[in-house]
Design a protein around this nucleic acid. Structure first.
Lengths: 204, 204
DNA sequence: TGCTTTTGTTGAACATCGTTCATTTCACTC
DNA sequence: GAGTGAAATGAACGATGTTCAACAAAAGCA
């Protein structure tokens, strides 16, 4: 299917993704312009389309990198903590949620583009992009299996999704400056409160 | 500041918002093109800019209408239920959350544009648009004051925001077809579970 | 080295946007 | 009917993403 890329192409692709990442971090997806990117990496305008099918693919590749970094951030937050007791599980879930908040805040525009991607309709998400997402869920799922080991797995997965989504919602609206700005510490407190409340609900 | 609009202008504006709403409902904000809209309401291209400053303002006006309809939907879900006991409050909060889910599902593209609005930086949200948002929070705040009357008001408002945001997150990710599609009934169940768990957490 | 073929690069050109504005048309008054 | 101000018009402008015929560079080969 995909022919192996020459070393040169690899380097061009990496440079292109670097440039795109920089531009998105500065001004969001609206700041991703073909002519600017071509100038950034020193190639002609048309040359972009030898490296990447279109700008959407480029945004997708940047997003994949962002997802990777997000995963690392969650891993770092997880691995620092023990995971033996059920209380450990709760503490870890709180830590993961807080790490999510901080990543989103520190990488605001890159994080937002994760959810602004609109694939040309009909085309499905590439497999490598879907994998990145599943890896994230596992961070939440792992403590959950310790917390409620008797629950069947489909319910556990569903609970992980729900918890993740709820935290995501708080972060999303909390970082929306359109509304009243919420202080970071207040957001942290509300997230912790919600995670603990739902964990208590899970344990019955 | 704003001169009173002639009757003719009012009618044109209404027709324009109608057309824009129809186009967004069909294909999202990407489907909002000046030439199409002008053709829809039978005026010349340039005439659009006598009715509306730019397409962003038009999208904002459509969003205002959408927020209004969303408010009505939440009101309808609320008013059908009594609000005397604390259990009533929980039941009502669940009903509101379910109504939110159904509205989002039934008005998917219009609902999404509520959050896709990017104001030209520096310009603040018009007051009439901010009011619409506050009205929504009141739907959640009202049952909450019954549920935890001893809590000081700032905490209550924060709790309402958090609950709203959490439900919003579940709905957002649940309706994202990019990931695995979640059945509607499963979403309903997860929302109800989360709302009840957080309410239990509130009551201590 | 010279010739051919393949591969990679270029930038002008195209299509499609939102937005502007000089010109024209219209409605109304005296 | 002439004059005047408001409203509507659509050609034109500047961005933008994308394509492709022409060009250049590299690689294979004698």
């Amino acid at each position: 299917m995909t022919t192996p890329l020459s070393e040169r192409r690899q380097a061009q692709l990496a440079a292109l993704i670097d440039a795109a990442e920089r531009r998105i971090a500065e001004g969001g997806m609206a700041n991703l312009r073909a002519r600017d990117l071509a100038a950034d990496i020193g190639i002609a305008l048309g040359g972009l389309y030898n490296i990447v099918a279109d700008l959407d693919e480029l945004a997708l590749r940047v997003s994949s990198r962002t997802l990777g970094r997000l995963g690392e951030a969650l891993t770092a937050a997880s691995d620092a903590l023990p995971l033996r007791t059920k209380d450990d599980a709760v503490t870890r879930l709180v830590a993961i949620a807080h790490a999510y908040l901080h990543f989103a805040r520190d990488n605001l525009l890159l994080w937002r583009t994760l959810f602004e991607l609109r694939l040309a309709e009909g085309t499905a998400l590439p497999a490598w992009a879907a994998d990145d997402q599943l890896r994230l869920f596992r961070h939440v799922a792992e403590p959950l299996t310790l917390l409620v080991p008797d629950m069947d797995e489909t319910r556990q997965v569903l609970a992980a999704r729900t918890l993740f989504a709820a935290v995501h919602g708080i972060v999303t609206l909390g970082l929306e400056e359109r509304l009243v700005a919420v202080p970071l510490t207040a957001l942290e407190a509300q997230i912790e409160w919600l995670v603990r409340a739902t964990c208590r609900g899970l344990r019955e």
